[in-house]
Amino acid sequence: MSISIYRLTVPMFQRGLASLKTYLDKAEAYAKEKNIDPAILVSAWLAPDMLPLAGQYQRASDSAKFTLARLTATDAPKFEDNETTIEQLRERLAKTEAYLATFSAQALEGAESRQITLPGKSGIVLQGDEYITTFALPNFYFHVATAHAILRNQGAPIGKRDYLG
């Protein structure tokens, strides 16, 4: 039995974005309860050489939208990467969700065999299905999990169930 490229991408990204929205709700409530400036959480990071929480949200959003754009040979919307508040991160997630909602299963038919060049300077080319399973989904979930870890590290009450949706 095969699984469609649509089912491997759009619902998976939607689920991860839903987890990220839950994190924002819980982070906002935590900041209010503990009288913490929410900007501290948005700018928090795990290590100096890693992106802060806002960067994790930006990269998760980019991973979802650029994956679908590459698989359909279309252009993804461009976002500024300038979010500094919880509300701005919510807005970015909403824009990403709206973009994902424009894709149908038919739009992704044949994408499993499309040749995708990995971003960056590597020049590595993967077939669409391999691109999804070895790069796009792991990259997306890395940023979702890192956002989770940053907020946990800051004391926010999020757990595995929030990650799993």
Rank of each mutant, 00 (worst) to 15 (best):
T72M: 04
K65Q: 13
R59P: 04
A145G: 12
K160W: 03
K78E: 15
V10H: 00
D25Y: 08
P157H: 12
F79G: 09
T134M: 13
V42N: 06
E109P: 04
A73T: 09
E80T: 05
I132A: 00
G120W: 02
S61W: 01
E83G: 01
K21A: 13
L93V: 13
I40S: 08
A105M: 07
I40P: 01
L89A: 00
S43R: 14
N35Y: 04
T146A: 15
L68V: 06
G16Q: 05
G155H: 06
I124E: 13
L8R: 14
A44Q: 13
V10G: 02
F79M: 14
A94P: 02
K65S: 12
E97K: 11
A149I: 04
Y99M: 06
L20K: 05
A107F: 02
Y163E: 10
A60E: 01
A105F: 02
M12Q: 11
L71M: 01
S43C: 02
A47K: 14
A98W: 01
E87H: 09
N82M: 10
A64R: 00
S61H: 06
Q115G: 07
H148K: 09
L151N: 03
R161W: 07
P48C: 04
A44W: 10
N139P: 14
Q106M: 03
K32Y: 05
I86P: 00
D25P: 01
L53Y: 08
E91P: 02
I5Y: 01
F103N: 14
H143Q: 09
K78L: 14
A73P: 03
G110M: 10
G128S: 05
E87G: 03
L164H: 01
Y6F: 15
A39R: 10
D49P: 03
K34Q: 15
A60G: 05
G123T: 07
L24A: 09
I86M: 11
L17G: 09
L53D: 09
E83S: 12
G159A: 13
F13N: 11
A39H: 08
G120S: 07
A105E: 15
G159Y: 00
N82P: 04
T84E: 15
L8W: 10
G110Y: 12
D129V: 06
S63C: 10
K78G: 12
Y57G: 13
K32E: 15
A44H: 09
L68R: 08
L118W: 05
F140G: 10
P48Y: 04
P138R: 12
